[in-house]
Design a protein around this nucleic acid. Structure first.
Length: 268
DNA sequence: AACGATCCCTGTTGGC
DNA sequence: TGCCAACAGGGATCGT
């Protein structure tokens, strides 16, 4: 599902929108604009030109020519497609944006995604911590200090570090050799360093294959290609299968309502 | 303040 | 075979 590597892959595909003029916008499912309190996403986008596209954590950010920011979040099942205008939209399309030469489609079966146009982007993303690709070991150490919450809960907390979701939190903790249930404040400096050191490689490896697509909830790239599969992951989705390092069965528990995968020999 | 539970939503899956 | 409950999890919100 869309976490930092998937969203960054989408952002790169959508660089082709830079400089293009928005001709027509259709909201096909009202829930996609639930964060726009005045309900005027279409009106605020129509007629604008995209100046540049960026990302912070799992949020896509497009600068518009009226100095507003167009923000998109893919939720858990959202994907973006670039198609020729006029081709009928597929099932679960919640938003279409017609740029004349190309049409952007936001497809989101479980409707946890959303879009919003704001003058001050901090109204929407101001609470986010440093992006996971930029976060320093000092920032992580400061966020963990004195906390009793499980370390995985803090990795998932976008105020601590922005961009990690359920898959890559599990993968980072496996690579770091730290149990997800450990109280964050109990970690040694060396363990914090291992976690910090694991974030970059885990995200880079995922980015290299365009992110991860699930078996039952396909994540497709804007050109229609599939992202990487679950096979290359270390622990996520591998409950009962042998740990790739020691061979013992991968365990699963529920933490903060999220499926959590780990190896109780390789992670301490 | 920190932490955990609940809610939203729907396609898929597993049990009976 | 068919039905239905359980499950998956982004982020927001609420209770303790």
């Amino acid at each position: 599902m869309p976490e930092l590597p998937e969203v960054e892959t989408v952002r790169r595909h959508l660089e082709v929108l830079t400089g293009l003029h928005i001709e027509r916008v259709r909201v096909l499912h009202r829930r996609v604009e639930r964060r726009q309190h005045d309900g005027r996403v279409a009106a605020r986008l129509t007629g604008r030109t995209v100046i540049s596209g960026g990302r912070h954590g799992k949020f896509l950010l497009f600068d518009l020519d009226d100095d507003a920011t167009w923000i998109l979040h893919l939720g858990m099942s959202g994907s973006m497609q670039l198609r020729d205008p006029g081709v009928p939209a597929e099932r679960h399309t919640v938003l279409t944006v017609d740029f004349g030469t190309v049409e952007l489609r936001f497809v989101d079966p479980r409707t946890f995604g959303f879009t919003v146009v704001v003058d001050d982007r901090d109204d929407v993303i101001g609470h986010l911590g440093p992006d996971a690709v930029d976060v320093t070991v000092e920032q992580i150490g400061a966020a963990f200090g004195g906390r009793t919450a499980p370390v995985k809960a803090l990795l998932l907390d976008q105020r601590v570090v922005a961009g990690l979701g359920n898959i890559y939190s599990d993968e980072v903790l496996f690579r770091a050799g730290v149990l997800p249930t450990r109280p964050a404040g109990s970690l040694t400096g060396e363990e914090v360093e291992r976690i910090h050191g694991a974030i970059g490689p885990v995200l880079a490896e995922a980015l290299a294959v365009g992110g991860t697509t699930l078996d039952d909830l396909a994540f497709l790239l804007p050109d229609g290609a599939a992202a990487g599969d679950l096979e290359r992951l270390s622990v996520y989705g591998r409950t009962g299968l042998p740990c790739r390092r020691c061979g013992r069965p991968v365990r699963r528990t529920v933490l903060r309502g999220r499926g959590t995968h780990y190896c109780d020999r390789c992670q301490r």
